[in-house]
């Protein structure tokens, strides 16, 4: 099968990763921007939020990559 070793579900999940990455960074930056406006700490909370968002985005990507690696290995073991 052309999609092997990944299933259709995995391919759809992979295409969503980019959007999840962008969303995590945007969410962190947005939360930081909101805190800055409330506390008047411009731009420090936004920079902190951006970095935290980026860290979360990397965590999501690494976790998904690990899950896919596990699936690939289990598919190979079945063969």
């Amino acid at each position: 099968m052309a999609l092997s070793p990944f299933s259709m579900q995995d391919h759809i999940t992979i295409t969503t990763l980019g959007l999840e990455f962008a969303m995590a960074v945007a969410l962190g930056t947005g939360a930081g921007f909101w805190i800055d406006r409330k506390l008047g700490t411009t731009p420090w909370a936004m920079i902190g939020g951006l970095l935290l968002g980026f860290a979360l985005a990397m965590y999501i990507v690494i976790k998904e990559a690990n899950r896919l690696k596990k699936e690939e290995n289990s598919a190979k073991d079945k063969k």
């Binding site: 969503t16 959007l19 999840e20 969303m23 995590a24 969410l27 979360l56 965590y59 999501i60």
Partner: peptide
């Protein structure tokens, strides 16, 4: 919190996509 926010992000991504 990381896992809870990941779940919220997934739901947001569904809407935005």
């Amino acid at each position: 919190p990381l896992e809870v926010i990941s779940l919220i992000i997934r739901v947001c991504v569904l809407a935005i996509r």
